[in-house]
């Protein structure tokens, strides 16, 4: 298809995903294979654009123009010079967000985000679908959680968003490192959990496991879980038990299982593996093994 289009539009460009800084004198589209293709607007009539939009998804590259505040932060991160640093009044944290590509107009996203906080928060865009929100630590009684923000935006903007929430920082020292580590971590954590809002505290075990070299990782999974490594049903039971803070009643309720059957299943696991999942350090080992398996 792309070759055929190129015969018609000589200016046609193709990028794989993740390409930033797309030329704004071009019209951009996403193909079914997730390639981004662009055609010089000079070469297109409005009829062409409508026609292309019937089988390609138009791709919106308009990022909001950065505010002074946003430029200041960006500069502090990117520049090694200490002159780039500025005074900050409160502690702050970075919150990474990622939206499914092409589900949203960044300007609309910005408008909605601003309404959720007491004053407009700086947003540093990485590209059209991910970036960092900078939130000052304040004590507003009517502030809302990122779990809520995720659900509000899902209803209002029809987008699924992941948030990764960083720790609070009191100064701009090492801000570049903070920024890069946060983005790196954010790109990894969502492999290990299907939660859509994850904090840096939740993420510690994920990041540890992610650091381990793959051979050892798969070895941990195998040696700990032994013959259960492919027993999805038992592993699901154990995972739920861990998520329910080792509480039998709660786990039985969530799994809709009888207490006794649950006890029995855990006892069997103990007999076969020697691991007593009711004890903290055994539970922790199994938890890491489950993560290692993912």
């Amino acid at each position: 298809m792309i070759n055929q289009l190129r015969k018609i539009y000589s200016s046609l460009l193709v990028y794989s995903e993740g390409h930033d800084n797309l030329d704004s004198t071009y019209k951009w589209f996403v193909t079914g294979e997730n390639e981004i293709i662009g055609i010089d607007e000079e070469e297109l009539t409005s009829k062409d654009v409508s026609l292309l939009a019937t089988f390609l998804l138009p791709y919106n590259i308009n990022l909001p123009v950065p505010t002074d505040e946003e430029r200041k932060w960006r500069n502090a991160i990117d520049s090694a010079e200490s002159s780039a640093k500025f005074e900050i009044k409160n502690s702050y944290r970075f919150i990474y967000f990622s939206i499914k590509k092409n589900q949203i107009d960044p300007i609309v996203f910005k408008d909605a985000i601003h309404e959720l906080f007491a004053k407009p928060v700086p947003i540093l865009w990485g590209n059209g679908h991910e970036g960092i929100i900078i939130e000052e630590q304040t004590v507003y009684e009517d502030s809302i959680s990122f779990e809520e923000i995720k659900d509000i935006l899902m209803s209002d903007l029809y987008v699924k968003i992941n948030f990764y929430i960083g720790s609070y920082k009191e100064s701009l020292e090492d801000i570049a490192q903070y920024y890069h580590l946060l983005i790196n971590a954010a790109k990894k954590v969502f492999i290990y959990t299907n939660k859509t809002v994850v904090t840096y505290i939740d993420a510690v075990p994920y990041l540890l496991i992610n650091q381990i070299e793959p051979g050892l990782r798969s070895d941990i999974g195998k040696t700990v879980l032994q013959k259960y490594i492919n027993d999805e049903e038992t592993l699901k039971t154990i995972e739920t038990f861990l998520q329910c803070n080792l509480n039998i009643s709660e786990t039985a309720k969530v799994l809709h299982m009888h207490r006794n059957s649950l006890q029995y299943r855990l006892d069997r696991f103990f007999e076969k593996t020697g691991i007593d999942i009711r004890q903290f350090h055994h539970a922790m080992t199994v938890y890491l093994a489950l993560l290692a398996k993912k």
Binding site: S145, K150, S155, Y158
Partner: peptide, 26 residues
């Protein structure tokens, strides 16, 4: 479609009218 989710909350700084109007404004 219109959707309502579990952690659904309102925009804390908007009045009721604007809370209902906001999705349409966007």
């Amino acid at each position: 479609i219109a959707m309502v989710f579990q952690n659904y909350a309102l925009y804390p700084h908007m009045d009721v009218y604007n809370n209902m109007a906001f999705g349409l404004k966007l």
